[in-house]
Every structure is written in structure tokens, then in C-alpha cells.
């Protein structure tokens, strides 16, 4: 097969693209281990590895506190999003012949086109009157609420592909609707639920729009919020800032590498006619 081999032009293209994608990571690593006094230019190697940058970063960038907030908010959101989307998708998928459920599905799809800015001001107003501004609970509710439409739509098709006979058989055996849903349907949905969970983990971990609106006080800031402030304020002390960048990048990159196949599965769903 001649056309399946990679030619020289293709290799060159990959190389250039590869450099473009990898380069920022190399800069991060390099800058993170150099001393502030290093005058050797951006690309020079450090005189020795300055581990103290990392210690400084952990302290100055409030990494421990923001890491805690990020972990709590992300885990809570992922659990809520998966639970709420899966149960809703089950109801819609099994009642697909009913107008009410179809209308709800259509509303979910339509809502994905609404830019966050169109609800930003009313959300802020509502949160202030409910005293939910600057609370983890408030952020978790809103971030989850913004994600359920997309996730529910992703799952519905998979529910519909599970043969109803499985449920009817269980019904005859005397199992109730809840037991059927959680012991028969949910386990069969595991692959798509894992995909949804992985994608949502990444997206909540990096969440910006809702967080900047609702999480403004210091002690409840997530990592992106903390860094938004930190990178703005400590512009001059680049080495500490890069050390902070590296510390927060590593866990999420490892997470990504381990669960890459779920990310690919999620993002490519619907790309090929099934």
C-alpha cells in the first residue's frame, strides 16, 4: 500500500508541529529549575537544578489551598454530572416515544447554544441574593448545571441501544425500576460513563468562566483562579511562577495520559456515521 507510507514532506510537517506543541512544555521545565539570577537567556541550561523554586511556588502561589479546592470541586462536580446525566438519559432514552421527554431533550440541545454570557448576569444576581457567591457548594451546583445538557445528550443514544428485553426479564423476576436501572442498565453504560467522567474531570479542573464569576475570595479559589491572579501579580518572578505552572501541570498530564482513550472516545463520538 503505497499511499499509507509517510513521505518526507509528511515527516517534516510532523516535526515542525511536534516542536510547536512540545516547546512550551520544555520552556516550563527549563524556567522552573533556573535561578532568578540566571542571566544566560531563555534557552540556556541552568547552573544547577534550583529545587527551591518549587518550595517557593507552593508557598507563594497558595498551591496547597487551591489544590484542595480544585480537588473537592472537581470530584463533587464529576459525581453529580455523571449521576444526573445518566439518570436523565435513562428516563429520556426509555421514554423516547413520549412527547414530554423529546421536548426536554430538544431544550437540552438548544441550551448548548446559549453562550454563558447570556446567563452570567442573572446567575450572579441570583447567587448574591441566595448568598451562594464565593462558596464551593454554589460553584459545584453551577458548574454541574452547565454541563448536564451536553453529557445527557451524549448518553441517551447508548441507553437506547441496550435491549429493553433485559429489563423486562428482570421485571418478571420481580426487580423494581431502581434496581434495574442501577444494577442492569448502569453497568452496561460503564464505557460511556467513564468517557463522560474523564472529559468532565478535565473540563471542570480547568474551568474558568463560572469560577471567575462566582469564586472571587482568596480561600475558595481553584487552581486556574489562583494562577490567574498569581501570574498577573508575580509577572516579574518568572521562575517561581513557572515552578508553580509545572507543579500544577504534572498531575493533570498524568491523568490525561492514563485516561487518554476515554478522551479520544468522547471527543470523536459522532464524528463517524454510526
Amino acid at each position: 500500500m503505497k499511499q499509507n507510507k509517510l513521505g518526507i514532506a509528511g515527516r517534516l510537517y510532523l516535526l515542525i508541529a511536534g516542536i510547536f506543541f512540545l516547546f512550551p512544555f520544555l520552556i516550563c521545565l527549563l524556567m522552573a529549575v533556573k535561578s532568578r539570577q540566571d542571566r544566560g537567556g531563555v534557552l540556556s541550561l541552568p547552573d544547577r537544578i534550583h529545587w527551591e523554586n518549587f518550595a517557593n511556588a507552593i508557598e507563594e502561589a497558595n498551591i496547597i489551598s487551591s489544590l484542595k479546592n480544585s480537588i473537592i470541586i472537581t470530584l463533587a462536580c464529576v459525581v453529580i454530572i455523571v449521576f444526573v446525566s445518566a439518570t436523565a438519559a435513562y428516563a429520556i432514552g426509555r421514554q423516547y416515544h413520549k412527547r414530554f421527554y423529546r421536548i426536554y431533550e430538544a431544550i437540552l440541545i438548544a441550551s448548548m447554544m446559549i453562550p454563558f454570557q447570556a446567563v452570567m448576569i442573572p446567575v450572579y444576581k441570583m447567587y448574591r441574593s441566595l448568598d451562594l457567591l464565593n462558596t464551593r457548594t454554589g460553584a459545584v451546583i453551577m458548574i454541574s448545571g452547565m454541563a448536564v445538557a451536553y453529557c445527557t445528550i451524549m448518553i441517551i443514544g447508548f441507553v437506547r441501544r441496550i435491549p429493553i428485553e433485559l429489563e423486562e426479564a428482570a421485571m418478571i423476576e420481580g426487580a423494581g425500576r431502581f434496581r434495574i436501572c442501577f444494577t442492569i442498565v448502569m453497568p452496561l453504560l460503564k464505557p460511556i460513563l467513564a468517557t463522560v467522567a474523564t472529559l468532565q474531570f478535565l473540563s471542570v479542573w480547568n474551568e474558568f468562566n463560572v469560577s471567575i464569576l462566582l469564586l472571587q475570595s482568596e480561600e475558595i479559589k481553584t487552581i486556574p483562579m489562583q494562577q490567574y491572579v498569581f501570574f498577573g501579580a508575580y509577572g516579574a518572578d518568572y521562575n517561581t511562577a513557572f515552578a508553580a505552572a509545572v507543579i500544577t501541570m504534572i498531575p493533570v498530564i498524568i491523568f490525561f495520559l492514563i485516561l487518554q482513550r476515554y478522551v479520544v472516545a468522547g471527543m470523536t463520538a459522532g464524528a463517524v456515521k454510526g
Partner: peptide, 21 residues
Amino acid sequence: EYFVFLIPSLILFVFCVIYPF
């Protein structure tokens, strides 16, 4: 029974999207 499964979604979605919108 099916409607019960939709309730969490309805509450969350109305609170976060429909009502603010």
C-alpha cells in the same frame, strides 16, 4: 417511575440554566 429519574436533572437544569435565562 421514569419521571423520578428525570427529577435531579430537571431541578439542576432549571436552577442553573432555565431560570437564569
